[in-house]
């Protein structure tokens, strides 16, 4: 049984790695712009399908991973600048903006459904024989995903702490008008955030389909609630928090699945969020109504 538990925990860490790549992108975006972006999952699907198409065209899978991320970045900038900004000009409020992103996600998802003929495509790249470490069985790709997540966390944290753009981003997230009057070009900061978070989103899409080995139009949408849960649980805008929350959710879901209740594994992940809301409402209330859109 301890062996079983250990292997569940290892699987949980892999799930957490995938989740945390997405959650870092989401929390970065949400923390700065204050838009609860429900089209995030759809952009993940775009990243995944890009990687699939590149794979079909025999492009190197690692390059496919990068280009999938790039596709996510481009899509996010197009949506952020081309759509959300237009709504912001018409003084659409925070909540209505979430409704807009919901509309975008319907349009993207079902366009993909129409183009992909509503089929599931198998995506089997970078598969290799699993490595046994005692009771833990991991494939090299899974190890790679975990390393990737750690690298992203370290690089992103360092970029936020030490680079000029990172400092500008944190300043804008805290107080946009003050940042603007200090000479920070908030428009550029937002653009960079769309790019970076979109890249992480696309990347997460590819990493996710590498792990599930298939892609269809619901890929990102089904993953999105877990991403939102991780971002809220970790504290909005905190990369470390997002990773920590991803670890909790990932390990709990896999341990529950390992105990033989497969149908309830995701439920357990969500239940954590609900429990946190029940026990510590203060954790999520901070900064109630006075938040403003930064676009």
């Amino acid at each position: 049984m301890p062996g079983q538990l250990l292997s569940s925990v290892a699987d949980g860490i892999v799930v957490a790695a995938i989740l945390s790549v997405a959650a870092m992108g989401f929390t970065l975006q949400f923390g700065l712009t204050n838009v609860l972006n429900l089209s995030f999952g759809s952009v993940m699907t775009i990243g995944g399908f890009t990687a699939y198409l590149l794979e079909a065209a025999r492009v190197n899978p690692w390059l496919g991973l990068l280009l999938g991320g790039a596709a996510g970045a481009v899509a996010t900038v197009v949506l952020g600048r081309g759509v959300l900004r237009q709504y912001a000009r018409r003084r659409t409020q925070l909540f209505e903006m979430m409704m807009v992103t919901l509309g975008m996600s319907l349009v993207i998802d079902y366009s993909i459904q129409a183009i992909s003929q509503n089929s599931i495509y198998s995506y089997t790249v970078l598969q290799a024989a699993p490595v046994h470490l005692g009771s833990i069985v991991l494939t090299p790709v899974q190890v790679g995903i975990v390393i990737l997540a750690i690298v992203i966390l370290v690089v992103a944290e360092a970029a936020l702490k030490f680079t000029k753009m990172g400092k500008a981003l944190r300043a804008t997230a805290v107080e946009p008008s003050l940042a603007r009057s200090c000479g920070i070009q908030t428009g550029r900061v937002v653009l960079i955030t769309w790019l970076a978070s979109g890249f992480l989103c696309g990347l997460a899409g590819v990493v996710y389909i590498i792990s599930t080995q298939s892609v269809d139009y619901t890929t990102g949408e089904l993953f999105l609630p877990l991403i939102i849960a991780a971002a809220i649980l970790g504290g909005v805008g905190s990369l470390k928090g997002a990773v920590g929350a991803s670890l909790v959710i990932g390990i709990v879901t896999e341990v529950v699945a390992g105990l033989g209740a497969g149908g309830y594994s995701t439920v357990a992940g969500f239940a954590i969020l609900v429990v946190v809301l029940l026990l510590r409402p203060g954790a999520v209330i901070a900064g109630d109504e006075d938040r403003q859109l930064v676009l």
Binding site: I228, T266, V274, I285, G287
Partner: peptide, 27 residues
């Protein structure tokens, strides 16, 4: 779910409730 929190969080929580219910009933 109706505790005082941001409206968008609340919406997200209720969406999650909807997904949980669907999974529980299916499983």
């Amino acid at each position: 779910s109706l505790r005082r929190m941001r409206r968008d969080y609340q919406a997200a929580v209720l969406l999650i409730v909807s997904l949980i219910a669907l999974q529980v009933v299916s499983a």
